[in-house]
Amino acid sequence: MFRQGGTFLGALALAGCSGDLSALDPAGPAARDIARLWWAMLAGSALLFLLVMGLFALVMLRPEAGRRWSPRAWIVGGGILMPVPVLFVLLLFAFGQGERHLPWRGEHNPVRIEARAHMWFWEFHYLDYPDVEPTVDVLHIPANYDVDVIATSDNVIHGFWVPRLGGKVDATPGHETLVRLYADRAGSFGGICAEYCGTGHAGMTFRVEAHTPAAFRAALGLGEEETE
């Protein structure tokens, strides 16, 4: 009964969190880890919030009850002993997670794509397939495969972001920045410019199409893969 209720609530929460651009509706390991981190931090924060507000209510309504702890215990306990371990664990965990999704990790060579930001559209160059024409506002990637996107710009700063697949990265003129995407299923995912880039900012959306290997080659207009 409880379990069913829990499942139901979970389903409701997930329905509220789904969406083409939702970071809470992950379709890849990086986005999924970050979504988990969010839910864990949300739960922890809710507890800490209730604790502080509970203490505030206590000291306002029944101040004498708070005097069982010395003033020093209040300040050292609440100001140092409570936050420091929480922050320490959180930092270690987040650092480990960040490390895990860094672009240089992975057993095989990732597909490399250059995302060139313009005002206001995206142009994707397939660096591993020099003969393939660049695509505009549609990025084809193979599903279940590491993809490294190198973002750059020759005008203003833009932000490359595919919320369901992973974090964002700035496309800065004069610099190349790297973000790893991984879609664990074939499908179509929304992308959007995250950094304000002028009057066309809101319209600077794009799509990421994740394909099976054969469909990926077809989408790029490549022939059947030769057997090695």
């Binding site: 502080v52 203490l55 505030f56 206590l58 000291v59 306002m60 101040p63 004498e64 009850a65 708070g66 005097r67 003033p71 209040w74 300040i75 306990g77 609440g78 100001g79 140092i80 409570m82 936050p83 420091v84 922050l87």
Partner: peptide, 19 residues
């Protein structure tokens, strides 16, 4: 941490006073 120290100093002041 320094934020929490201030917040808990305020809570301690309230609890040792007559708010």
């Amino acid at each position: 941490v320094p934020t929490a120290i201030q917040i808990f100093s305020w809570l301690a002041t309230l609890t040792y006073g007559r708010p």
